[in-house]
């Protein structure tokens, strides 16, 4: 290694007008938000809703969540995923970003599709990145789905997670009047601290 990594710093409390400007109604554009789908997107429509909680269980109202996921066929829209057998969806990029400062309960919300499994033997999941004031290094976690019991039980990444902490990665499915919703709260600390990954 000839170069050393630039250190991370907290995103701070004032990212909203720079990174999520339209969501917060600042006069600056925003190229990714909480809606990952259009009418043309293929796959089952789902909504992801959750809150970020601190070590006291208080809701964090200045966090930013990013998600990254495969499309309904389990393919990522990126040159490193060249698997032609799984078609790209021109109406799905797979990236979303949402700050927790604009909804009444300070939740994050993503309208997306349920991703396909990216290969045989793994459960479908969404990669989640957490940023916030007080969070020195962005934290990586994963969202798995509560209605994928069989696939989750065989998933090699979930297997690496201590059994008593796996529940922190499972989003709970609710069938609501406005569609399928998965609840995914992120606990930064405490008894049920979310599992965060290093890779």
């Amino acid at each position: 290694m000839v170069m050393k990594q630039t250190p991370s710093q907290t995103v701070g409390p004032y990212f909203a007008y720079g990174l999520t400007a339209q969501q917060y109604h600042y006069p600056h554009s925003q190229y990714a938000d909480g809606c990952l789908v259009t009418d043309q997107t293929q796959g089952e429509r789902i909504r992801i809703v959750g809150r970020v909680l601190d070590g006291h269980g208080d809701v964090v109202d200045d966090a930013m969540i990013e998600i990254w996921q495969a499309n309904a066929a389990g393919r990522f829209d990126h040159p490193n995923d060249a698997r032609e057998a799984r078609p790209l969806d021109p109406a799905f990029k797979g990236f979303g970003r949402f700050g927790t400062g604009t909804t009444p309960d300070n939740s994050f919300r993503f309208d997306t599709i349920k991703p396909g499994a990216i290969r045989d033997g793994v459960a479908p999941f969404i990669s989640v990145i957490v940023f916030g004031r007080g969070i020195m290094n962005h934290a990586y976690t994963r969202l798995y789905f509560s209605d994928e019991t069989t696939a989750n039980a065989a998933d090699p990444v979930l297997e690496k997670v201590p059994a008593d902490r796996r529940n922190t990665l499972i989003a709970t499915r609710n069938d609501t009047a406005t569609g399928v919703e998965y609840r995914f709260d992120i606990r930064m600390q405490g008894d049920n601290e979310t599992v965060f990954f290093d890779f």
Binding site: G55, F76, K160, M188, Q189
Partner: peptide, 17 residues
């Protein structure tokens, strides 16, 4: 103090995601 990850990160092998 209340927002930093407090438990060890779980190491995983990077894959396509």
């Amino acid at each position: 103090r209340l927002r930093g990850v407090s438990r060890n990160l779980v190491e995983i092998d990077p894959e396509l995601a």
